[in-house]
Amino acid sequence: MTVHICSLILEEPQTIPDDGNYHVVRFPFGLAESYDDQGMHQLAQPDGHRIANWRTSDRAGLIWPAAEGWGSLTAIVHWEDGQYTELRDRYERDPLNLSTGADSTATDHRARTPGINPFTKHHELFVHPATPLAFKVAHNSGSPERIIHAQFKLAIHPVKEA
């Protein structure tokens, strides 16, 4: 069986507000992507919506699974040194309530360390083509903070050949 892969990378700072909510990490499209041969992260999304600006649309953080199957999620986030005491991250199914309703998983809360704060995480779950996935982050600094690098990856092992 073919493994379906989408690998996204963000190589510019992205500001994350401190408003008590988790925020979708947004990723660029096209040549700025690491890998998306199965079309799981596109400007024209499967539900008919077209993204005008990836920097301002939370839809730019969605991966729409190309197949039903066992999904292996990986994320990397590097936080710029800041005034936070806690950093948070999680994966979320349908974070924008476009299909089945938001459902978070693999939530982590991490204490601040000196300097930049780089983290990686891995989680596995069943994925479905009509239910997009996102990597979300939060912090508690009292003012906006920046992530300076991020990656979000999905590898799908289909439950049956497409």
Rank of each mutant, 00 (worst) to 15 (best):
L31G: 04
D19M: 04
D36I: 13
W54L: 06
P65C: 07
T15E: 15
G69I: 12
T120I: 12
G71N: 11
I116R: 13
K136Q: 15
D37V: 08
G69Y: 15
D58L: 03
H23Y: 12
A52Q: 13
G115I: 06
T74I: 02
R90Q: 15
A44M: 08
P13G: 02
K121T: 13
S72M: 11
D18G: 08
T131L: 00
M1N: 12
D47V: 00
Q151E: 14
F126T: 08
A130D: 14
D18P: 04
Q45E: 14
A134N: 02
R50S: 15
E86G: 03
G142A: 03
R93L: 02
L62E: 05
A67E: 14
L125M: 15
A102C: 03
D94V: 00
P17C: 02
P114G: 06
I147L: 05
L10V: 01
V159I: 15
R93K: 14
H109N: 09
F152S: 06
V77W: 04
H78L: 09
V159F: 14
H41S: 10
A32Q: 09
H49G: 07
F135R: 06
T85D: 10
S72K: 07
G39C: 10
E11T: 11
V25Y: 02
I5V: 13
R110I: 02
L96Q: 10
E33D: 07
P95C: 01
L10A: 10
S72E: 10
H128L: 00
G48Q: 11
D47A: 03
T120H: 05
G115K: 03
I16S: 11
R88E: 09
H49L: 07
H157Y: 14
T105W: 15
L87V: 11
S7P: 00
Q83I: 00
R110Y: 04
A106V: 01
K160T: 11
F135A: 05
H123R: 07
A155C: 04
A155W: 07
E11D: 09
T56L: 10
P158M: 09
L133T: 01
P13Y: 08
L125C: 13
H123F: 13
Q14M: 15
A106Y: 11
H123M: 00
Q45A: 04
K121Y: 09
R93D: 03
A67M: 07
I148W: 08
L8M: 14
T56C: 03
S141M: 02
F126E: 00
L133Y: 10
H78N: 10
H41A: 11
W64R: 10
V127F: 10
